[in-house]
Amino acid sequence: MLRFVFQEVNPELSFFLDRLHVDLTYYTSTTEDLIFNVPVSATSGYTSTVLNAGKTENKGIELSLSGTPVQTENFRWDIGLNLAKNKNQLVELADGVENIRYTSLFGVTLEARPGEPLGTFYGYDFLYDDDGNKLVDADGYYLSTDEVVAIGNILADMTGGVYTDLQYKNLSFSALVDFQKGGSVHSYSNQWGKYSGTLAETAENDIREEGIVVEGMVAEMNDDGEYVSTGVANTSNISAQSHFFYNQGYIIHAADQYDASFIKLREMRLDYNLPASMTSGLPFSNISIGVYGRNLAILHKNVPHIDPEVATSSSNIQGFEGGQLPAERTIGFNLKFNL
C-alpha cells in the first residue's frame, strides 16, 4: 500500500480590474511505502526483490502569472509566465537497503539513494585538483575516480514557459516558449559517436593526423595513494583514437554526462477569422484559416548533437539517450468552418 500526504498553500490573487492574475502554490508532499522492484546482489541467488521501500519528500513552488497589458476595442495582448521548481529527496529506504538501482547501462547506473534525489546517475568521474583542473597521468590520459560517484540527476531544477497571444481585429497570433533548467542526461550517441569516429569533432583540427594534448594538470600519486597535481600542465600528446576511447564516457562515464537544460520555441500559430460580411452568401459560417508550427526550434541547449528532452519518460528509467530520433517538427495549415 502506498501512502501519500499532501499539504498546499495556494493564494490566488487578481489585481487591476482582473487584468493581472497571480497564482502561487507552495507544497510539500511525502510519499511512503513506495513499491519498488529492488535489485539485490546476485550472490543471494536472485537479482531483485519486490519491497515496500522508503519515503520520498517533494517540496516545491509553482508560480503562474498572467496578464493583459493592452486591451482596446480592436487589439488585445495577453502574456503569461509559469514556473515550477521542485526539490525531491529520498529520505529513507527499507531497513538493510542502501540503494535501489533502476537500471545500468555500459557501467553507468541510475539509482535511488537516501539523501539524494530519486534518479541519480553513478559512474566514474574525472579527478580534479582544488582549482577545478582535470588531472592527467604521465602518459597524457585523464585520471578517473577509483569508485563510482554521483555524476548527475535526471530531475530538472526548474521548468517553465512563456506564452503570448496577440489579437488584432480578426487576426490572432500566439507563441509558446518553454524551458528546463538543470537535470542531466547520459548520451550514448555522443559516447559511441566519438568512440567510433563518426562525429565531426573526431576529425576536426587535424586531430587524426596530429593527436591531441588534453587540458589538465599532470598528477602523481602521493604516499596515501591519492593523485595530486604536480602543478605542471600536461604536454603529452595522444592519438585521436586513444583520446576518443580512454578520455570518453565508456571509460570515464562523466565525460558523456551532460546538462539537460534547454529553451525551446514550442509552438507558434497565426489565425485569421473571415469577417461575417465576406461569408454571408456562403453555406458556411465562422470560417477561419491559419498556420501553425510545433517543435520549431531549440533556442539553447548544453549537449551537442542531440535533443536533451528526448531522454525523458514517465518511468523511473530515464536519462539515457542513445541513437534517438529527434522530436518531429510539425508545420500545418488549418481551415475551420461551421455548417
Binding site: V40, S41, T43, S44, G45, Y46, G96
Partner: peptide, 11 residues
C-alpha cells in the same frame, strides 16, 4: 552465505 535468497541479500 550465498544463495540464501531474501533471507540474506548482502552475503
Amino acid at each position: 552465505e550465498a544463495l540464501a535468497g531474501v533471507s540474506n541479500t548482502t552475503p
